[in-house]
Simulated scan of single mutants.
Amino acid sequence: MKNFENKKVLITGAASGIGKLMAEKLAKRGAVVFVVDMNLEAAQTVVSSIKSSGGKAHAFFADVSNLESLKKLKSDISALGLGLDVLVNNAGVVFGGEFEKLPLEKHLTTYRVNVDGLVAMTYLFFDDLRKSKDANIVNLASASGLIGLPYGTTYASSKWAVIGFSESLRLELLERGIENVHVTTVCPSYISTGMFAGVKAPMLLPWLKPEAIVEKIIHGIEKDCAFIKEPFVVKWVDLLKGILPLKIFTFVNKLLGVSTSMTHWKGRA
């Protein structure tokens, strides 16, 4: 994507954190931003701020874990005749703790939001994206989708699913000769947005600043990158998993503090 001027960009979970920052930055680049969130009041506040700065934005309510809510979102946007060029599946949840001590509903909610909602959004808006001359599907995964994450089992496995879905879809589009829709998978380590309060960042994987990762994502969309992996050491995870014996790779994870990083997760207050 060469630029965002007048491009219609939908971002889920855009009332706060990474989604909010991305909405604000893309609006400054000329995009028409659809700020989608469960907290409609907060989404409207983001839209008001964007408009006061001369940008273009619309606020919509949606619960990405609820299919009927997503169908209504699609209907509301279609009724306005807005179309879509970029879909950013940013909404996500995380629950940490010992597997069997975490309520089952929280495990299942993780999948409903992080996987089911992401797939449903992509499905519902796919035809709109195909009509665009230059479209992008941007899926927020995680570095934990590349390795196991103790005390974050369903979170990590949901991100494994996001990576598998995104890469499979990207390759399918290539096989079908659909050249106007690109898929970008974002795999960052811990970002200091509050979602991971209590986490101890592993060695070589410092906390990522929201502003910096958002700039990386935007640049990745512009370049139609298949993957965005940050910080730099995340780019080497697949290679290390491939060449190191499992016991040694497991030992390295423990040595660096990856395996224990979620031990004291608290999340947002």
Rank of each mutant, 00 (worst) to 15 (best):
K2F: 00
F4P: 13
N6A: 02
K8A: 13
V9E: 00
G19N: 10
K25M: 08
K25I: 03
L26S: 14
G30S: 01
G30Q: 06
A31M: 05
A31T: 05
V33A: 11
T45N: 10
S52M: 09
K56H: 00
F61D: 07
F61Y: 15
A62K: 00
D63R: 09
S65L: 07
L67T: 13
L70M: 11
K72R: 15
K72M: 01
S75F: 04
S78Q: 15
S78L: 08
L80G: 00
L80C: 05
G81I: 04
L82F: 09
V88E: 05
A91H: 12
E98Y: 08
F99N: 05
E100H: 11
K101M: 09
L102N: 03
P103E: 14
E105L: 01
E105F: 02
H107P: 10
H107T: 08
Y111C: 08
V115A: 06
L118A: 06
A120E: 10
M121D: 03
F125A: 11
L129S: 10
R130W: 00
N136T: 09
N139T: 11
L146N: 01
G152Y: 14
T154R: 04
S158V: 01
K159T: 02
K159G: 12
K159L: 03
W160H: 15
E167L: 05
E167R: 09
E167Q: 15
E167M: 05
S168A: 12
L169Y: 13
L169A: 08
R170F: 00
L171G: 04
L174A: 11
R176M: 13
T185E: 04
C187P: 14
I191R: 14
F196Q: 11
A197I: 00
K200Y: 00
M203V: 10
P210R: 05
A212G: 02
E215A: 13
K216H: 04
E222S: 08
K223Y: 07
K229W: 11
E230D: 14
P231G: 08
P231K: 07
V233N: 08
V234L: 05
V237Y: 00
K241R: 14
I243Y: 10
N253Q: 14
V258Y: 01
M262S: 01
H264N: 11
